[in-house]
């Protein structure tokens, strides 16, 4: 079953890290992806640019509205995702717990809606 692990972090946090800490952070994520791949759980991942680059689009009374910024204005913002394929929710939670993002943000685990079923 596929699950999307969405990482939400405080965007300002990264720039406050020392270069050594940043290097450690990058290495942690790289190792995490490697472990996912070796365990045959990896489907895909992406890191998102900061929410200052976000644009939000909606239609109000049939008229399209375009706004600068993210949809939700909260301290922790969607920063990236890992799409994984594992047997069940417990396995997905085990991978979420290993995600380096849990030490500086949160990881939301959502099952993918299976369109073929």
């Amino acid at each position: 079953m596929q699950y999307l692990l969405m990482t939400y972090v405080n965007e300002g946090g990264w720039t406050q890290l020392t270069p050594a800490e940043q290097e450690q952070g990058v290495a942690s994520y790289r190792a995490y992806v490697e472990a996912l791949v070796k365990a045959n759980a990896f489907v895909g991942t992406n890191r998102l640019q900061r929410t200052s680059a976000a644009t939000t689009v909606r239609a109000v009374n049939g008229k399209t509205q375009v706004l600068d910024g993210p949809y939700a204005d909260s301290k922790e913002q969607l920063a990236g995702y890992f799409l994984i394929d594992v047997p069940d929710l417990d396995a997905a939670l085990a991978w979420a717990a290993r995600c380096p993002a849990t030490s500086h943000g949160v990881v939301e685990v959502r099952p993918i809606w299976d369109m073929t079923a």
């Binding site: 790289r30 490697e34 472990a35 070796k38 290993r98 380096p100 849990t102």
Partner: peptide, 12 residues
């Protein structure tokens, strides 16, 4: 092997 150990670890 360290890479795997790091990727599987939960404790920062």
């Amino acid at each position: 092997a360290y890479g795997m150990a790091i990727g599987l670890e939960r404790d920062p």
